[in-house]
């Protein structure tokens, strides 16, 4: 009875401590503000589709969705920046899991918010939800890889650069699967490439984290 009581006595504080750790990690990465930014992306996407800012056919039909996917990927990428630097790296085992969980959750939230923004528009999203998931995940992977190379504060440069490459790919009808955002949603090669980019980004950011630089 005493052993069981003591087990119960330790489990609740540990859970509370875990939740508290997650919350502090989330706050240190400015996740709440980033979620607000993602909500704004979804809302503006809805407005852009409702007001028909893009042509409904042809390569131009993909420009608006791709723009917002790049935007959410850039927002997620900069949340990888750590204000603590090496002091945080010298801690124990929880940091990689916190990083991984944060990024996966943010990606899911971003996809959900973009899908919601597109669903409420009359004609839906060119490329559909599958295309949205593929593109957003792939670009997030690029953002995370950028964070590992350039640092968290500059990580947005990767998705933005990829956005510009995608614009050229759309204009010139490139077929390489590495420009997955310019490919049809049923393109298997593009899905594989996007998935590979996402997984690579996840692994790198979880294990290594963003590159440290003094003063960001």
């Amino acid at each position: 009875m005493i052993a069981a009581d003591s087990q119960i006595g330790t489990r609740a504080p540990r859970t509370r401590a875990g939740l508290r750790l997650m919350w502090l990690h989330v706050v240190s990465r400015r996740i709440p503000a980033a979620v607000v930014a993602l909500v704004a992306c979804g809302a503006v996407l809805h407005v852009a589709l409702a007001w028909r800012w893009e042509p409904r056919t042809g390569s131009g039909a993909l420009e608006i969705p791709v723009l917002f996917e790049a935007g959410t990927a850039a927002v997620i990428a900069v949340t990888s920046y750590s204000p603590f630097g090496e002091a945080e790296r010298a801690t124990a085992r929880w940091l990689p899991w916190l990083r991984l969980g944060t990024v996966v959750a943010m990606t899911a939230v971003a996809i959900g918010l973009l899908a919601a923004g597109a669903a409420s528009a009359a004609d839906g999203l060119t490329g559909g939800i599958l295309g949205l998931v593929r593109d957003a995940a792939g670009m997030t992977g690029i953002g995370l890889l950028s964070a590992a190379v350039l640092g968290g504060m500059l990580a947005w440069a990767g998705p933005i650069a990829y956005l510009m490459v995608t614009e050229v790919a759309l204009l010139q009808a490139w077929t390489t699967p590495w420009t997955w955002a310019a490919r049809p949603p049923d393109d298997e090669g593009a899905a594989i490439c996007a998935g590979a980019a996402f997984m690579a980004g996840l692994v790198v950011i979880a294990v290594r984290g963003p590159r440290d630089s003094v003063n960001g």
Binding site: A34, V78, I160
Partner: peptide, 11 residues
């Protein structure tokens, strides 16, 4: 300024 400003402004 802030980490979110740069990507949001460029977008």
């Amino acid at each position: 300024p802030g980490r979110l400003a740069a990507p949001l402004i460029v977008i």
